[in-house]
Design a protein around this nucleic acid. Structure first.
Length: 820
DNA sequence: AAGTAAATTTTTTTT
DNA sequence: AAATTTACTT
């Protein structure tokens, strides 16, 4: 096979050792992805293995996607009727469970929902509340983490409970919450991220039949980043390879950085015990980086005690020295990085550059400075598309249609947009559900029936509201069914969810920039669904699973040469130029890890990963001051700086720096030197430039009223947009008002027409009542038109459209309205 | 019920 | 500083 010729002897051996357990210890940049992909191609082309008998598992979607692309490229000339399954652990488990979870006999159905971290924390919070614990004492986030950790260690509730039985109160409380949490998830037919693995392992353990099925299907299994597997993942692999033992794992103990997810470095160190007769191949030649970069990485990792000593070598040049910069504050660090990137891009417009940081929160200053310089960039991680409120809301409608037992989805959307279902009603529904041990949806279903006791504490009005919500979901369920039966598309159902729920109408009538941005995000969601339409046998189910399991949008702007991400997300990637920023104690290493030797070693491995991403040039920067929780504090240079070979570093800082002190001092970079430096710089430091633009707009009625007061003019229809177009009102109302909603265009048009009508002259009257169509005056919003009147007596609720402010709902009694 | 103001909390890292 | 949660007002 021609691809083999491009491999070194060890790599070629790793490709050709196709049968039996194989451990490939692959140092950074040693071409491990190349080995895995060529190995897959080799199995198919030379060994005649059917592609669908091959399974490759990765940790991230990005890694899986990249591997798929490269395998596809290697196989492009073959006539194949299947393709290897290249997937993350979690998607693999979803695939198995969607088929066979019912064999587990734990009450779960194939229609199960996946709860993300946020969803599962909501459940934990509700359990804490319902068990009568104080949220301040038993903190939801902490308990959720404890549950997740236990699950990833392979512990179930019973084991967890027995372990904490005689320890402190809080842990005993956590055990109770854990128990209720599991029960709630079962009732909701929902699995959290960890359950996906747990249930799959349990299923394989329990059913010899299912085990046989998947052993026969996946005859050759490859696992990437094996050093990051946890006990649960090891169990999964063990069961899946029970029969054939064709397991190939690739990893590097120096790059183990997922200890917080219970990854156990022993998995890779003890591979030969877990899989007897395993072959071990070492890949030690680095093709990626310069000698300087490797030496820097090696020098840092050498400070770890629990580390297999090994030396990567390269035939690459020594290369450029590492470039160092000390900034006065975080903005200065951002300016330096942006300026250097600009310089590199000017010299070579297609230069790929990465900015790597320890925490997502650090990204902001770099974004700001890059934007200021008009440099395009991609940002990986952080706030994901599918985590946005409006996207989660619409996805929740779909999830509910697919699995009505999903309480979290139901709670999310039952009053979004507002339907008049408030706290009182929900509390009643929830306590009733808890008493019956059923999901909220089942309680909702009882509401329509007379004499069931459910409606006792619910007003007729609220009951009607709940029933209308029920109708919305049932309608959506019909549409979902049509995707399977007719040629209806996934995107049609997504659009239906946005329109029929009243969501689009809600956003459109809000008339604010924020609502506009949300609508655009929903449009993006529809676009994502349209992508799904193109696939053969695409289902809503797959679409929703994808939304649950994919962290980032993978809609990377390929024209941008600059990528911003955390060190964790950078693993497995490489860039000609890398900026490693924020090298300060408390940031990197992180303050949460600084006092635990084991965690500090993991931070060091993280630094190792970061440095070895660089091919040609590495920049390292740190700042003397940094904001933490809004407070500006002095920052100490990272202890990792001390561990680098200073002679390989060039100092680009202005004047003296930590580095220049470290060089002149015998006790290099001692605290004394650092503090002395700070004292000296304090006086000479240039004053921080004032940030004139706060970057925040307040879309409140008060802000608008204030604006018009200053301008001494009346607000015009067209909402906040008329701010900027006060002198061209036609444009403001014609071009800047969003198009009418797809669901009810005529209705919306009518609404707009009414809203723009000239109100009549005003007239005072004490405590008047208003019917739909009446013109009113509100002290804050000015003139408006009553669109709807609901309820009676003290509970009369009016929906009023105020030109320039959009629709508002208010209680007549409190609204203090005048006749206009 | 819903909007607003005030108080409180938040930062690891990812599926 | 920004985001989220709570308490209060209409």
């Amino acid at each position: 096979m021609e691809a083999l010729f491009s491999l070194n002897p060890q790599q070629a051996e790793a490709v050709q050792a196709s049968e039996g357990p194989l451990l490939i210890l692959a140092g950074a940049g040693s071409g491990k992805t190349r080995v895995i992909t060529v190995r897959i191609a080799h199995l198919i082309k030379e060994k005649g293995v059917a592609p669908h008998n091959i399974l490759a598992v990765t940790f991230t979607n990005k890694a899986a996607g990249e591997m798929r692309d490269r395998v596809r490229e290697l196989l492009k000339d073959e006539q194949l009727n299947s393709f290897p399954l290249i997937s993350t652990f979690h998607s693999l488990c979803v695939r198995i469970l969607r088929q066979d979870i019912e064999a587990l006999n734990e009450g779960y159905k194939k229609t199960f929902t996946i709860y993300d971290t946020d969803d599962s924390q909501r459940v934990v919070k509700a359990c804490i509340k319902d068990l009568g614990f104080d949220e301040k004492q038993v903190i939801p986030r902490v308990v959720r983490n404890a549950i997740s950790s236990a699950k990833n260690r392979g512990e179930d509730v019973e084991l967890f409970a027995s372990k904490v039985e005689h320890t402190d109160e809080k842990r005993a409380a956590a055990a109770k919450v854990f128990r209720m949490y599991e029960e709630r998830l079962r009732i909701a037919n929902a699995l959290d991220f960890d359950d996906l693995l747990i249930k799959t392992v349990r299923l394989l353990r329990k059913s010899a039949e299912v085990r046989e099925k998947y052993n026969n299907r996946y005859k050759y299994i490859l696992v990437d980043e094996y050093q990051d597997t946890n006990p649960l993942q090891l169990a999964l692999i063990t069961f899946l390879t029970e029969k054939q033992q064709n397991i190939c794992v690739v990893g590097d103990d120096a790059q183990s950085i997922y200890g917080f997810r219970q990854a156990d470095i022993r998995n890779i160190l003890e591979f030969e015990q877990h899989f007897p007769n395993a072959k071990v191949i070492l890949l030690e030649q680095n093709y990626r980086s310069t000698q300087t970069i490797l030496d820097t990485a090696d020098a840092i990792i050498a400070n770890n005690i629990n580390q297999k000593k090994k030396k990567l070598w390269t035939s690459n040049d020594g290369g450029e020295r590492v470039l160092y910069y000390q900034a006065q504050d975080a903005d200065g660090e951002g300016r330096f990085v942006a300026a250097k990137i600009e310089e590199h891009l000017r010299r070579n417009p297609s230069q790929r550059v990465a900015v790597l940081y320890r925490t997502n929160a650090q990204s902001r200053v770099f974004e700001e400075q890059l934007r200021r310089m008009r440099i395009d960039y991609n940002i990986v991680g952080g706030f994901s598309f599918y985590e946005r409120q409006e996207v989660k809301d619409i996805v929740a409608y779909l999830k509910l249609a697919l699995n009505p037992q999903d309480d979290i989805a139901l709670l999310r959307v039952i009053n979004t947009p507002t339907r008049g279902i408030g706290k009182t009603t929900l509390d009643e529904l929830q306590s009733k559900s808890a008493a019956l041990g059923v999901s909220l949806w089942e309680t909702v279903a009882l509401i329509g029936e007379p004499m069931n006791g459910v409606t006792a504490n619910i007003t007729t009005r609220a009951r009607d509201a709940v029933l209308s919500f029920k109708k919305v979901i049932e309608k959506l369920q019909k549409k979902v069914a049509e995707v399977a039966e007719t040629d209806k598309k996934v995107s049609d159902v997504v659009i239906a969810a946005i329109d029929d729920s009243g969501y689009s109408l809600m956003l459109r009538s809000e008339n604010s920039d924020e609502a506009e941005a949300r609508l655009e995000n929903l449009e993006e969601l529809v676009n994502a669904a349209v992508d799904y339409d193109r696939m053969a046998d695409a289902t809503i189910r797959d679409f929703i699973d994808h939304a649950a399991l994919t962290a980032d949008t993978d809609s990377l702007d390929s024209s941008a040469r600059v990528t911003l991400m955390t060190v964790h997300s950078a693993k497995g990637l490489e860039f000609p130029i890398v900026f490693l920023v924020g090298l300060e104690d408390g940031i990197f290493p992180h303050s949460r890890s600084i006092n635990d030797p084991k965690e500090l070693e993991e931070e060091r491995r993280l630094a190792y990963v970061a440095i070895t991403r660089a091919e040609k040039l590495l920049y390292i920067t740190h700042s003397m001051r940094r904001r933490v929780y809004g407070e500006e504090i002095a920052a100490e240079p990272s202890q990792f700086l001390n561990e680098m070979p200073l002679e390989l570093i060039d100092d680009l800082s202005y004047g003296s720096s930590w580095l220049s002190f470290a060089r002149s001092s015998t006790t290099r970079g001692s605290k004394y030197a650092v503090s002395a430096l700070k004292g000296e710089r304090a006086a000479a430091a240039p004053s921080k430039p004032k940030n004139l633009y706060t970057g925040k707009t307040y879309n409140t009625a008060d802000a608008v009223a204030e604006f018009f007061k200053k301008k001494n003019i009346e607000p015009q229809p067209g909402g906040l947009d008329s701010d900027r177009n006060a002198s061209v009102n036609e444009r403001a109302s014609d071009e800047l008002t969003p198009a009418p909603p797809r669901s009810s265009p005529s209705g919306f048009d009518k609404l707009r027409a009414i809203a723009s009508e000239k109100p009549k002259s005003e007239d005072q009257g004490p405590k008047p009542t208003f019917v739909a169509g009446a013109h009113v005056r509100h002290e804050k919003y000015g003139k408006g038109l009553v669109l709807r009147r609901e309820g009676s007596g003290d509970n009369v609720k009016l929906t009023i459209s105020f030109p320039g402010f959009g629709q508002k709902k208010m209680i007549e009694k409190f609204a203090n309205l005048q006749k206009a």
